[in-house]
């Protein structure tokens, strides 16, 4: 039963991905990207990763779709035709890279395999000791906020930096104007 759900969701993912590549209308492509994120969120839910699914649904399907739409409103919503010519060399490069990646997946442990290396390192410690070391029922929160507090601290700074970057790039003009006006006022005040 679960395999059928996985199969259906993965098929839809592939179909939507191909559609996004083929579409010339960027507005429709953005909408399909939202659907892609929603499908990924459903997949994460089926795989019992609710925290990740939550984030994917909120960020991927919600915020980034709106930001993409806002970007389209500032630029064109139609793809430039000059990138549509068929070229043989990029095709070979993409097919080769894809083949290598598919070949690499054969070495990866099966989904949910308890013997997988990732489940042998620190995960057993988290599972056994979260209750007496942290005392928080949601193990994901315990790992994110306490065991890996440094990582989350770094991630928060990354988000902060992203915001500063956007403010400088898009609102830089306003900031420069603000400073210029202030300096002009200062100069007038001095003279």
């Amino acid at each position: 039963m679960l395999d059928i759900v996985h199969l259906v969701l993965f098929t839809f993912l592939a179909v939507v991905a191909v559609a996004i590549i083929r579409l010339k209308d960027l507005f429709a492509a953005v909408m399909l990207m939202g659907i892609f994120s929603l499908l990924s969120a459903s997949l994460f839910t089926v795989m019992d990763a609710v925290d990740v699914a939550f984030t994917e649904a909120a960020v991927g399907a919600g915020i980034s779709t709106i930001l993409m739409l806002a970007t389209l409103a500032l630029t064109e919503s139609e793809e430039e035709p000059k990138y549509n010519r068929f070229k043989i060399l990029p095709l070979i490069a993409v097919v080769l890279t894809g083949a290598v990646l598919v070949f690499a997946t054969f070495d990866m442990p099966r989904y949910g395999d308890p013997e997988a290396p990732i489940h042998q390192h620190v995960a057993p410690h988290y599972i056994e000791h979260t209750d007496d070391e942290i005392g928080v029922p949601n193990m994901v929160t315990a790992v994110l906020a306490s065991y890996r507090g440094y990582d989350t601290w770094g991630e928060t700074t990354v988000i902060f930096t992203a915001c500063v970057g956007v403010m400088l790039l898009l609102g830089g003009h306003a900031i420069v104007e603000r400073f210029r006006r202030r300096r002009k006022l200062d100069v007038e005040g001095d003279s």
Partner: peptide
């Protein structure tokens, strides 16, 4: 602390 979610999801 008790269910799925946390600061990042709530903020979004």
């Amino acid at each position: 602390d008790y269910g799925p979610g946390g600061g990042f999801q709530a903020g979004v």
